[in-house]
Design a protein around this nucleic acid. Sequence first.
DNA 1: AATGCACCCAACCGCTCCTCG
DNA 2: ACGAGGAGCGGTTGGGTGCAT
Length: 328
Amino acid sequence: MGRSPVPPSSNQSNLIKKGAWTTEEDQQLINYIQNHGHGSWRSLPKLAGLNRCGKSCRLRWTNYLRPDIKRGKFSQEEENMILHLHSILGNKWSTIATRLPGRTDNEIKNYWNTHMKKKLLQSGIDPMTHQPRTDLFSCLPQLLVLANIKELLEHNQLAQNLQYFNHFLQPNNTGLSTLLNRTSSIPLFQEENLNFVSEFPVLEDDQESEEIRQFPVGTSNVTQPLHQEVSIMNLETSNDFKHVGHCQGQSAFTSVNSSPSISAVTWNPIPPLIDNTATATTTNNSGSLESGSTISYSGGDGGASSYNWPEFLFEDSFKLDQTLLEMS
DNA sequence: AATGCACCCAACCGCTCCTCG
DNA sequence: ACGAGGAGCGGTTGGGTGCAT
């Protein structure tokens, strides 16, 4: 595996071999270092009888031949450690490697780039900032789910529920933009962005819970990422709204003082599409990684619930509504 | 069976940092 | 304080491999 020898383009290249190491070369390097130590890497190749540059020898030894190198898959503990350290240190692979005995910086870097980065992106988390992604594309899977649910409901003629979706999918509807905000991040925390209270027809007291109960979106009792936990609190703590119903993660409020009276339904946000093994939770209240804030990730069996979106919601039937396109 | 494609990871490159005279 | 050389680091490359068609 790895690179094949590069064709020599100069006299020096004719002397110094590049590309994949042979087993003979490996053995030569091991024998020399075991007997003499590596000493000066620059002079090692000549002393060891290798037709390589010192840099190449150092790399081969530290990343592959060193006897204390741990091989095989990364454990969940190692993965959590990498995640945690990366959230603090960033791409300081060598520093991260010092905390993972037997793992090299190169190996950790490769693992991050090929596995963990992908996982985080799928979870709607920016791998560089460890914060929820704010770009529209990060919301696309959620939008796709929404649109497919709408289609399903249409198909099943569940008009009663459909009004909620239609409401979301109307042009200039604050509900959808709010939903996007809520699945996105930080601006939500600002006062001016808390205008997500949707104006629904007033519901009779004995109707609300039933109405809400029938609405199928939302998952309760899940550990929500930071950005998904805020807005409902603002309604719940507001003197202007009365909590009148709650079911399956949705809460219904009605205004106390407004005339004409308005009702509001807060939606549990569409959860990010994440791997069962990588549920994210956070205790960060500021959106910053600084000053003691922490982000922890636990495995699927680690206590935190994971989201499971039904496969059928992602079927090809999805046709991106022009309304949604315009909103982008 | 042949081909195409995506993924993985060893190895290279270029830059910065460190040490020493 | 400064410069040169060596070591280390992070980003990138590209060939091997396995899976899908």
